[in-house]
Amino acid sequence: MPSDSPDGSPHLTWRGLLLLGASGGLLPSPSAFLVLLTRLLTGKVGIALAMVAAFGSGMALTLAGVGLVVLRGRDALLDRVSRSRTLRTWTSRVPLCAASAVVAGGTVASAVAAGRLLSP
C-alpha cells in the first residue's frame, strides 16, 4: 500500500532512487577535491582520477543503499500501520509532535542566545 502523490504516482520509486545515487555521485566532494589536488601536485594524475572516481562511486552507492533501506522501511511501516489502529492514530500525530519539538528547541536556543547577547 504505497503512499501516492495526488497525481497517483508513488513518491519514491526505483527510478528516483537510481537518480538520487547518480546525482550524489556527481556532486563534488571537498575530500575528493583534496585528494585530487594532493595527487596532482605529486604528479600522479592517473591515481588522482581513479581516487576521485572511487569517491563518486562510493557516494552514489551509499545514497542508493540508504534509499533502498528507506523504500523497504516505508513498505514495512505502511504494512504495519494498515493493520494497527494505534499506529494509524499516532501516524497523524507524529508530524505535529516533531514540529512542536523543533519550535520549542528553536525558542529555547533563541532565548539563550538573546540572554548572552544582552548580559553585560
Results as ranks from 00 to 15, higher is better:
Ser31Ile: 15
Val108Tyr: 14
Pro30Trp: 09
Leu41Ser: 13
Leu63Cys: 04
Thr42His: 08
Gly105Lys: 07
Val66Glu: 08
Leu17Ile: 05
Leu27Ala: 12
Ala101Lys: 02
Asp75Pro: 01
Arg83Met: 05
Gly25His: 04
Gly73Lys: 06
Ala54Cys: 12
Ala48Trp: 00
Leu37Glu: 14
Gly105Glu: 06
Val45Asn: 06
Gly67Val: 08
Pro30Ala: 10
Phe55Pro: 01
Leu37Arg: 07
Thr38Ala: 15
Asp75Met: 13
Leu77Asp: 06
Val108Arg: 10
Val66Trp: 06
Val69Gln: 10
Leu19Glu: 08
Thr89Met: 08
Ser3Thr: 09
Leu41Phe: 12
Arg72Tyr: 11
Gly46Glu: 14
Thr38Trp: 12
Asp75Arg: 14
Thr38Met: 11
Ala76Pro: 03
Gly58Gln: 11
Ser29Cys: 12
Gly24Met: 14
Leu12Lys: 01
Gly73Val: 06
Lys44Val: 06
Ala60Phe: 01
Lys44Ser: 15
Pro10Ala: 08
Gly16Cys: 02
Val52Gly: 03
Leu40Cys: 11
Ala48Gln: 03
Val103Asn: 05
Ala50Phe: 11
Ala32Asp: 01
Ser82Asn: 12
Arg83Tyr: 05
Thr107Tyr: 03
Leu63Arg: 00
His11Gly: 02
Val94Phe: 15
Gly65Val: 00
Asp75Gly: 04
Ser9Gly: 00
Ala101Val: 12
Asp4Gln: 02
Gly106Pro: 04
Pro10Val: 01
Ala64Lys: 02
Ala64Asp: 01
Leu26Met: 13
Val108Thr: 10
Ala22Asn: 02
Cys97Ile: 11
Leu18Ile: 05
Ala101Asp: 06
Arg83Gly: 00
Ala53His: 09
Leu68Tyr: 07
Ala50Gly: 09
Leu71Arg: 06
Ser9Asn: 02
Thr42Leu: 11
Ala53Met: 14
Lys44Thr: 13
Gly105Ile: 07
Leu17Ala: 10
Leu36Pro: 00
Val69Ser: 13
Trp14Glu: 12
Arg72Asp: 04
Ala104Thr: 13
Ala60Gln: 06
Ser57His: 00
Ile47Trp: 05
Met59Lys: 14
Gly24Cys: 14
Ala32Ser: 14
Thr62Trp: 07
Arg85Pro: 12
Met59Gln: 11
Val69Met: 15
His11Asp: 05
Gly58Met: 11
Asp4Phe: 00
Ser100Glu: 03
Val103Ala: 15
Leu63Trp: 02
Leu63Gln: 02
Arg80Lys: 15
Leu34Pro: 00
Ser9Ala: 04
Trp90Gly: 04
Ser100Pro: 00
Gly65Glu: 01
Thr86Val: 13
Leu26Pro: 08
Ala50Leu: 11
Ala50Arg: 08
Phe33Gly: 04
Ala109His: 01
Val81Lys: 02
Ser31His: 13
Ala99Glu: 02
Gly8Asn: 01
Leu61Ala: 14
Ser3Met: 09
Ala50Cys: 05
Leu41Lys: 11
Met59Cys: 05
Lys44Arg: 15
Ala64Asn: 01
Gly25Gln: 09
Val94Gly: 00
Leu71Met: 15
Ala76Lys: 15
Thr13Tyr: 02
Pro95Val: 06
Gly21Cys: 03
Gly16Asp: 15
